[in-house]
Design a binder for these strands. Structure first.
Lengths: 221, 221
DNA sequence: TGACGTGTCAAACAAATGTTTGAATCTTGT
DNA sequence: ACAAGATTCAAACATTTGTTTGACACGTCA
């Protein structure tokens, strides 16, 4: 990583605190939700003073907005929607890539693992920041998936059936996250979400969905 | 100077207040979540005094437990898992009944509509009350669905494939609830969840799932 | 009737928490 | 080196909120 020409590790770097706050806030917001999260805990983890949040972000709510945008950008950068697959690849392969990338994004265990939980919380308690996120980030991805599904179904992307089928695909991915507490209690053994498990689930979802999609194919007339 | 001696606004019905508190608390908890919900707002809607919650339930947390159990019992009573379908009905019909009943329970718009949101919140922030709920209520329903799927697949209920397929079915139902904020923003027009829309979605999910399940059928050997 | 238990009420209490403040410290440009 | 701005700090402030309190009203029963 490259920084400014001067290197002052021990000294308080102006952007250092801001960055630490973003990361710490992401963790805390993901763990506790917006309201439950306390500015004091965020600052404690960031090694910053209590007044730091208000100084750098104005207030708690604007900090949250920045965190949401920051985190989503970071995971999308780590796991692009088609994982670098060529645009002219067969739609079946693109579907699998889409499913796998979505799962990887949701279950990312890296230092940015809070993105998944953050989004899950937005689903239940949407904040003002969700509107722009949907328009700028999610709608393009939805269009991408619709195009893949439409291609498989041999139907126009505006077809109602395409929309419903795209939902059916996405739903299977989000399920393991959104219903994790129940899944974990029902099957404690199989609930470890390591790389192998994610691959297995991606395989199942792709197989399941492709089989279903075949029955919806519009024969050319 | 006694102001109250002349007026008698509320008759002292012992269980009346308690019941009103349960209903009001369900609403408020569903809207705001456990932490965000305030005892003051609950009591205001119930037409009760601020001290009523502590008097009748001890504290806010025990009130929440009672609400969760109460609401789940009420919706399950309203929409039984198979909607009164005969046990010996063909598994395809039972699958559709299961899907429809789950959707109806999730999207119930009656006076108990908050149950769906309540459960959605439990998925993200499980409370202590979830453990017993899963064991007593959800596990039997999961077993019921597994049996139906196993029957269709001609596989043993313990088969890994049965579990994954059952998840695929349930996930499509819960999706419209758990991802409602995004769905609503993506397609504002089609997001009205009236009876007709629910029927349509149930049809799609059943068709989609049955087509997929067929490809997983274990040929007898 | 009159004491007792139940339920309700307004007010107060105590703790948590977002935000502000004013001084102290550090960085930067000249 | 010095001054001005940027940043950090500890303390205090103001508000929200769960809980408690003590008085009051009402029905019950000896």
């Amino acid at each position: 990583m490259k920084l400014k020409s001067e290197i002052k590790p021990a000294e308080p770097n102006p952007d250092e605190t801001r960055q630490m706050l973003l990361e710490a806030a992401g963790e805390v917001f993901a763990e506790a939700g917006f309201r439950n999260a306390t500015v004091r805990e965020i600052c404690r983890r960031a090694g910053a003073n209590i007044a730091a949040v208000n100084y750098h972000f104005g207030d708690k709510e604007r900090l949250y907005s920045e965190v949401l945008r920051y985190s989503h950008g970071k995971t999308l950068e780590k796991y692009p929607p088609l994982l670098g697959l060529a645009e002219n690849a067969p739609p079946e392969k693109k579907l699998r890539a889409f499913v796998l990338s979505l799962l990887l994004r949701i279950f990312d265990t890296g230092p940015t693992s809070w993105h998944g939980r953050l989004m899950a919380r937005e689903m239940i308690e949407p904040s003002a920041a969700l509107d722009s996120l949907v328009e700028e980030r999610i709608r393009p991805m939805a269009a991408q998936l619709s195009k893949i599904v439409a291609e498989i179904l041999n139907r126009p992307v505006t077809d109602e059936c395409v929309r419903l089928c795209a939902f059916s695909v996405v739903s299977q991915c989000t399920f393991y996250k959104h219903c994790n507490p129940v899944v974990m209690r029902l099957f404690p053994k199989q609930s470890e979400m390591d790389a192998a498990a994610i691959e297995q689930i991606a395989d199942h979802i792709t197989k399941f969905s492709l089989a279903a999609l075949k029955s919806f194919i519009e024969k050319k007339r």
